[in-house]
Amino acid sequence: MALEAYIIHILIIIGIYVILALSLDLAIGYTGLLNIGHVAFYAVGAYTSALLALNFGTPFLISFLAGGIIAGIFSLVVAIPALKLRGDYLAVATLGLAIIVENILKNWTSLTRGPLGLPGIPKPTIFGITLTGITYLALVIVVGVVTYYLLRYLIKTPFGRILQAIREDELVAKSLGKNVTKYKTQALLISAFFAGLAGSLYAHYITFIDPTSFSILESVLIISMIVVGGIATLKGAIIGAIILILLPEALRFLPLPSSMIGALRQIIYAVLLVVLLIKRPQGLLGKKTEGVVTT
């Protein structure tokens, strides 16, 4: 029974990270927006959803959608100054964003209770059924599948093609009549929306959130997922999320003395990732660069 609960727990966490990795891949992989602050949208979604449920008792579906929408609106505020920047500069700006958000969560104590966090976030109830364990897993899977298919559809439309054109060469997109700033803003908005939904799913699953859950390290983890899986491949984002959550869990069961296992786990984990990226720099599912590269 305990093992079953453990497996369900791991699967739910994987599901939440799948949504985060998929949504970040739209920004980084497809649009070329090097966003290191994805965790900020995740945090905004989680806090929005939790605060609505705690303070106003809003039904889950409403807090859940609000988490996504507020994260999306928040991305617009960010987009106005940040999207004028390119490449490395955008990376630094979004890094700053993540740190700012984390500090606001820590210091706006009247709203967020600061480092004390928000306990007692209600488990979601849909149609009178309270979702826990396997039913919560079902909810996460539904959201994950919908996210995957929506994003897959989107990148195959002319809209998605423009995002990829912007990634390849902004000047070309501009010279062919595309309003590059508008498309970047929209890509970031969609990316933030899904990250917000993932935040809500996390908050209502753990039922307790505090600023430490949304440190910059989370962003690094999500970026690692899409790099390991293969950048700009949605399936790769999924595989990457599964591997990076499962790998440290699997290492838990290594027959090692308990005094060493903590440090060894992290070393093995890091070595495996480095080996993987040396052997397959394009990621597990990444497209190989065919033929002769002329550039």
Binding site: T157, P158, F159, I162, Q164, E168, L171, V172
Partner: peptide
């Protein structure tokens, strides 16, 4: 419309996709 002195294609898109970018389509919105 213009071309550039140094060729500017979109390297990781196919030829058809490179041309389709030049179209103004309702599916871009």
């Amino acid at each position: 419309t213009r071309t550039f002195q140094l060729i500017k294609l979109l390297p990781k898109l196919t030829l058809v996709e490179n041309l389709l970018i030049a179209k103004q389509q309702s599916g871009e919105h």
